[in-house]
């Protein structure tokens, strides 16, 4: 019925078809129109809507302040309503542009704050997850020798400073030197850009060959802050176990034989309480690594603070 009605007015149909950007070959013309009849109908409805809106917009915009009210004028013949304005307390007139401006300023300000907080909480949650429940997943007690001073270096030396630990060996052909160079870039960028000082630690996986002297000599080529740690085979093995570092020396080695050590290549970021935060791998380059470390440091909350929060009514926010 409807489609026929529209079809009976070919001019309207054609103009709408043209508007919809479709061209029909004469043979298919009829079916095309039928297909589009629904759209035509919609269009008509919209036109009607538009007409109504135009009618409405003829009314003046409301100037009733917040808190104002209507009162029916009994003497008005057409039932016109007039607002009562509370003149005693001064009108709360608002101008649209000021309100819009206030809305934008406050809105974008809040948006910015919430986004920043959201990001920070995410990092915090991730750190919390990495800490595990009760016992830390990565890290733990160890005792090694500081190659430059000859003193013992254990997990307590990680306290009061952010530390970054790397496991490697001095005979490493290509990955370790590249990674240590990268570490040097990170340390410098963190210092100059954000005034963050990390305690960089290099632990050898090859204690048989990496004596304190060899380590000191090797680390001279890299950032001066890097602390080299070595120890007996068992001490190193224990440390690697604590940090879940895999390493393997080839079996049946003859003394003095040249060999390579297979090991996992990760940087371990440790917080000032000596707790593991996050690993950084080869996917973090000179620039992204710096940003990642900064982000992790910003998201850090001391354990005492975390404990305090648990009892608070808003503790669910941090879960």
């Amino acid at each position: 019925m409807i489609s026929r009605q529209i079809l009976s007015r070919p001019i309207v149909g054609r103009s709408l078809l043209l508007r919809s950007g479709l061209t029909c070959r004469p043979v298919l013309g009829n079916s095309c129109r039928l297909l589009h009849s629904f759209r035509v109908l919609k269009q008509k409805e919209n036109d009607n809507d538009k007409g109504e809106i135009v009618f409405k917009s003829k009314k003046p915009l409301s100037r009733i302040p917040i808190g104002g009210s209507f009162e029916k004028q009994s003497n008005s013949a057409n039932g016109d309503r007039k607002p009562i304005v509370n003149t005693a307390s001064g009108t709360i007139e608002f101008s649209t542009w000021k309100a819009a401006l206030l809305f934008i300023v406050v809105g974008s300000g809040l948006y910015f704050i919430f986004e920043k907080e959201k990001k920070r909480l995410e990092v915090e949650r991730e750190a919390e997850a990495n800490r595990g429940y009760g016992k830390p997943v990565v890290g733990g007690p160890f005792s090694l020798i500081n190659c430059s001073t000859g003193d013992r270096f254990n997990e307590e030396n990680l306290n009061d400073n952010w530390s970054i630990i790397y496991f490697g060996f001095t005979h490493c052909p290509d990955i370790c030197p590249d990674e240590l160079d990268k570490l040097g870039v990170w340390l410098n960028s963190l210092k100059t850009k954000f005034n963050i000082k990390l305690q960089p630690i290099f632990i050898t996986c090859d204690p048989a060959r990496d004596t304190p002297e060899v380590m000191e000599n090797y680390l001279k080529d890299f950032h001066p802050d890097i602390v080299g740690l070595t120890g007996s085979y068992d001490e190193i093995k224990n440390t690697c176990k604590q940090y879940r570092v895999y390493f393997s020396t080839p079996p049946n080695l003859k003394p003095g034989q040249d060999y390579l050590v297979d090991h996992s290549v990760f940087f371990y970021l440790m917080d000032p309480e000596g707790q593991f935060v996050q690993v950084l791998g080869m996917s973090n380059d000179e620039v992204t690594g710096v940003d990642k470390i900064k982000e992790l440091i910003d998201g850090y909350v001391p354990s005492s603070e975390r404990e305090k929060r648990k009892g608070k009514w808003y503790s669910f926010l941090f879960e």
Binding site: T170, H171, P177, R209, G256, Q257
Partner: peptide, 20 residues
């Protein structure tokens, strides 16, 4: 060029780069 009996010293930066 150790023949397997000598302890091969650790390469320094210059030697590493030369090798690469």
């Amino acid at each position: 060029s150790g023949n397997g009996d000598d302890d091969a010293p650790v390469a320094n930066r210059q030697q590493r780069e030369q090798c690469w």
